[in-house]
Simulated scan of single mutants.
Amino acid sequence: MRLLLLGGTREAREVSATLAGLRDLTVVVSLAEGARDPATRIGGFGGDDGFREYLSREGIGAVLDATHPFAERISMRSARICGEVGLRYAQLLRPAWQPDAGDRWHSARDEAAAGAMPSEGARVLIATGRQRLECFGPMEGRRVLVRRNGPAPDAPPPFADGAWQVGVPPFGVDDEERLFRDLRIDWLVVRNAGGGSSRAKLDAARRLGIEVAMIRRPPRPDAPRLETVEAAIAWARRLVEDR
């Protein structure tokens, strides 16, 4: 059986590594971008028709969606088309973060709502990645710092008073707390991606009493959902056993 693994997350890499030696299962990893190896394809599929044609041409027998929790368009399309063509589909979706005592979280439906939350004069750190920054709006009257991994672009981020905050992960809680103090951050803006590797910024915000604009996850497909790498591996093993 050929399994298409829609990747881009740490969980996807772990699943791929474990399933690589499973007998009677060939795993093809698909990434939007990144380094290529013989079992990895890079780039999109060319819309709905392109995805259908790829599944048929490559003899894909099932799809495991381990894309980012905010990759709404990819997940919705993949689940829908798998249903239409009769392929097994499941989504590996890590649990969302939940607030603890002392957290000062404010739920936002999207970037625009999150951008409107900080009051005028606030110093804001946006830690949502480089995409969709324009969706926040200009955020006039706020000092907006945007976290970026790697070199900063020549152009500033699209805010009335914006700048890049360059850093190299992983970031520990103490490191985050020190950074937030140095930058005098009043608001932290994040997407509820879940997972432990990037939770440190939320723990640091709790320590300092920083307000957090937490962007809610988009709708997910009505399809089997797996919350752990172990559950995803077991699902893939059952595919082989049930053939």
Rank of each mutant, 00 (worst) to 15 (best):
W164Y: 11
D161F: 02
G162R: 02
A213T: 07
L208M: 04
V190T: 13
A160R: 13
L202I: 08
G167D: 10
P158T: 13
L179Q: 12
Q165P: 01
G209E: 07
D222N: 10
R220N: 05
R181G: 03
F159A: 10
R207I: 00
P169M: 06
R181P: 04
P170G: 05
R184D: 15
W187E: 06
F159V: 12
A155R: 15
S198F: 03
A155Y: 08
Q165I: 04
P151F: 02
G167Y: 10
D203V: 09
D174F: 07
A163V: 04
G195I: 07
D186Y: 06
P169K: 09
A213L: 00
A163C: 09
P153G: 14
D203S: 08
V173Q: 14
W187V: 03
V144K: 02
P153W: 12
R220F: 02
G194E: 05
G162Q: 01
A163K: 08
A200I: 01
P153S: 15
R142M: 11
P218N: 12
G172S: 15
W164A: 08
G195F: 08
P170V: 03
P219Y: 05
R147F: 00
L145Y: 07
D182K: 12
A155K: 11
P158K: 11
R191D: 00
R143W: 05
D186W: 00
A155H: 12
G137C: 10
E140K: 14
R178V: 07
D222I: 03
N149K: 12
P153L: 12
G196Y: 00
V189L: 15
R148F: 06
K201G: 01
R147H: 07
V190A: 04
R216G: 14
P158Y: 12
D222M: 07
V190M: 04
R220W: 06
N149H: 10
G194A: 09
N149W: 09
P221H: 01
R191I: 08
W164K: 07
A152I: 10
L202R: 03
L183Y: 07
R199V: 04
I185P: 03
L179R: 15
P218V: 11
G150M: 11
A163Y: 08
A152C: 14
G141V: 13
G141K: 13
V146D: 09
R184Y: 04
S197W: 13
R178S: 15
D161A: 12
P153C: 13
I215S: 06
S197V: 15
R142P: 03
I210M: 07
L179E: 11
F180T: 02
M214S: 04
V190S: 04
R181D: 09
G196P: 02
R206H: 01
V146M: 11
P218R: 10
D222G: 01
D222P: 02
D203I: 01
P138G: 09
P153M: 12
A204D: 05
F171P: 00
A213Q: 03
Q165V: 02
P221L: 05
R178P: 06
M214I: 14
D174N: 12
A193P: 02
V166W: 05
G137F: 10
I215K: 01
V212W: 06
A193I: 13
V189H: 05
R148I: 15
R143Q: 13
P221Y: 05
G141A: 14
V189A: 06
A163R: 14
F136V: 10
A204K: 05
L183M: 13
L188N: 01
A204H: 00
